[in-house]
Design a protein around this nucleic acid. Sequence first.
DNA 1: TCCCGAACGTACTAGTTAGTACAGACCTAT
DNA 2: ATAGGTCTGTACTAACTAGTACGTTCGGGA
Lengths: 230, 230
Amino acid sequence: MTDRLGDVRDGGLTERAIRTQGDILEVATAEFAANGFAGARVDEIAARTRTTKRMIYYYFGSKQGLYLAVLERVYAQIRQVERGIQVDEMTPDEALRTLAEATYDHHTTHEEFIQLVSIENIHRAEHLRQSETILRENATAITLLEEVIERGVREGIFRGDVDAVDVHMIISAYACFHVANRHTFAAIFDRDLLEPARQDAHRRLIGDLVVATMTDRSRSGGNGSTGRVG
Amino acid sequence: MTDRLGDVRDGGLTERAIRTQGDILEVATAEFAANGFAGARVDEIAARTRTTKRMIYYYFGSKQGLYLAVLERVYAQIRQVERGIQVDEMTPDEALRTLAEATYDHHTTHEEFIQLVSIENIHRAEHLRQSETILRENATAITLLEEVIERGVREGIFRGDVDAVDVHMIISAYACFHVANRHTFAAIFDRDLLEPARQDAHRRLIGDLVVATMTDRSRSGGNGSTGRVG
DNA sequence: TCCCGAACGTACTAGTTAGTACAGACCTAT
DNA sequence: ATAGGTCTGTACTAACTAGTACGTTCGGGA
């Protein structure tokens, strides 16, 4: 009660209220990411905020409501990063490499996001499907990739049977794995995928991987115009 | 009590006991994979077996003991698959493609294994690290890959700065993602990664991807003898 | 100055869940 | 046949946890 301010209004919410909600969301993000939905404890979240459990229910209604708010927050953050990427002036392969590295950098520095995505998949995306914002806004991440790939195919340097969603999947798979399966991988193969000393090599590798795949001329069967994925 | 047999002994365990334990493990695998460790209910597992909760505690001691038994069981299964792979007669790139496709096929047909690995990572592999068997036996999966890659590098067709563990990571990442992130991916991008119609294309793609990456001659900087990963 | 609603804190409850006490059935060996 | 260990079922409990009832404080507008 020492830092109470002269509550200035802002869209129906007190400044203090906004800070309280932000405080709760930050702590809740860590708690859900670390323990899963069922494993997370509302009491534990409350204890680690400046406020009380009462407030969590006051602002978010239920444990599930809080979880959904956490999910929307982390998905909004990745949208923010994606919007900041500029690849207009680059050649298609340079652009592809840049996009891959940006995704790699985001995921490896946002462990909580990846953990929450894992958790959400355990629950078959049943919460995520309730969020129109995420479904509507986060699919647009593909647009940029589509332009780059279309350009590369038109210029004849990219294969034509792998589309933007496929490429996004490849990049995401690589970047997610480093974070999501870090612990079992380290336990079994004794190699920490996020070790700082390896970061640069791993970043280069995802670039190599996606460019090599898209520019590959020696692959098994078919070519740019046949055997389209899907 | 209708199907009671004349309990024949086998290594200290009744035949009936073995069947009971197997029954519990099978049901528990599904329950843990579907709901996570905290979300899984011992009562629910008991209700879906032919036996009772009492037996779960009799054989496995605790919820955690049961979970560990489940984990060991699914890891033992993947070891079994890995042991069955033969690549001696193949060229290194054929062998690599075969190994990648086998991993892809295993993971896409063993959803529960992937889910349990995800769950275990949420818990920072703290249960897995307790299992000496998994740590000792499952690391040997790399051996086969090591031979193939060494052969490819010696023949001058593979790059030399990516080792067996890196390649295993690439293959696992791709194969895991299809299963682990299936639901969020489908929700956002409206594409089911496990749709049967796409299976062949996706299997071919992981082969292309890993072979293209390893045989890539046009990559960013360095070559086979410099900039080694790690 | 005093009313009103937003924001907040404490103490509680109803329901759930991991784990157990106790009793009994079954098989094998002697 | 009977002792003793393995195996099984029922009914219970102690502890935990999401959610709430109720009261209080605060700032701003009339």
